[in-house]
Structure formats: structure tokens, C-alpha cells
Design a protein around this nucleic acid. Sequence first.
DNA 1: TTCAATGTTCGAATATTTTCGAACTATCGA
DNA 2: TCGATAGTTCGAAAATATTCGAACATTGAA
Lengths: 101, 101
Amino acid sequence: MRKMNHPAIDDIALSQVLHALSDPVRLDVVRTLARDGVASCSALDGGRPKSSMSHHFRVLRESGLVRTQTDGPAHMNELRREEMDRRFPGLLGAVLGAPAD
Amino acid sequence: MRKMNHPAIDDIALSQVLHALSDPVRLDVVRTLARDGVASCSALDGGRPKSSMSHHFRVLRESGLVRTQTDGPAHMNELRREEMDRRFPGLLGAVLGAPAD
DNA sequence: TTCAATGTTCGAATATTTTCGAACTATCGA
DNA sequence: TCGATAGTTCGAAAATATTCGAACATTGAA
């Protein structure tokens, strides 16, 4: 398995995070992860093709929002909640508390 | 002057707001409006062409972030801060408090 | 070591955004 | 009413994003 790109949290730009969150599919993934803590990619795909989801997970990883770790053949995802809260205080809280689209 | 589209705040979707804020030009406009209160389009253009800025202001208006009113030939813009705070509590505060890109 | 399960990567099609010149509209003052 | 100022709209080009099938890679288990 190729090494995944988990950028340092201080290298993340705000507009990058906002863009990652502005896609409904990804916003949904983030909401689910906030609720469930950890989930595999397939548990979060909502019936969408694997390649589409792989793209979305990459965007989420590159924006610093999600950390992915392998657990057997599965990739387990979780929010980088503490780090995001340190870099962008209140942002995730506001997004997760907002009314669903 | 054609009537501007200022949607009801409750019709705004979160992803719409996040998308509007995810563009660096628009994020800059929002930051400046938060600091200065009210400003004309030309005061916020940063040297960019009028037609480009007109596009960005339209996105900001349609996302509920900005209200535009005519004042003579000029269009004065301001954040819909209270309304946004009611619909998306903490969101603007977090965005405006975040480190500049 | 072969298989099934889980994701990634690649490439191409489609869709959406961004950018900006040119033409147009509105407002105010001379 | 003519001009100057301030923005909008239109249209087209360029840049980005999204989608997804097909092929490939990795893991653990039979």
C-alpha cells in the first residue's frame, strides 16, 4: 500500500478546508465520521462507485480533515478533530452543528 | 438597476456558504467587510476586473453572506452577520478568526 | 499461493467555476 | 441632457472538479 499523504495541520489553508467541506458527499462523510468516530471507506460510500469515493477521501485527507489508517484490507477513516480544532477553532463545531442541507 | 437577489437566510444551504467562502478572493472580501463594515465593490476589487468581481459578489449574495444596497451609482456591501450567525452559529466567527491563508 | 475483499490509480468524459473584455444600465451632477 | 462613475450582463476561453469504468495493488485467510 502506498503511503498516504497526511499533511501537517499547520500547512493547511482555510480555503482548502472550506472547499473540502463544500461538497455534499464529503460533508456527509465528515458528519458521519463525527457521529461514528471511525469508519471504513465502503461503510461511507452511500452506494457510490469506489473510484469516486477514493477521490473524495483523498480530498478530505489533503485538506487535513481526515486521517486514514489501514486495518487489514480496509482503510479506516477518522476526523483529525483535535488538530483541526487547534488550527481552526470552532470551525468543525459550527459545521457539524449546522442544519443539514 | 435590476433587483438584486437576496435569498431568505433559511433557504441557504451550508455547502453553498462553504463554497462561497472557499474562494480566496471572496474570503478576502468577507474578511474586509467584517473589519470595515460596509464597502463599495470597487473598494474591494484589489485591482481585479469589474466583471470578475461582479461574479464574486453575486456568489456572495446568493450564498446569503452579503447584502448589497445601492448608494448613488455605487453598490455598498455588508455582511449579513446577524442572520448568518442565527442560521449557522459560530461559522463566520470561526472563519474570521482563522489564520489567513 | 490463490482467492476474495477493499481501495487506489489512471484516463477520459462531463460539469462547474473562474476569468475577463465588450457592451449595456443606472445614477448623479454639471 | 450629456458625461462620468460604478456595476451588471453576456459570451467565450481556460482552469478545476466530479464522476466512473477498468486495471492494478494490498491484505488476510483458506
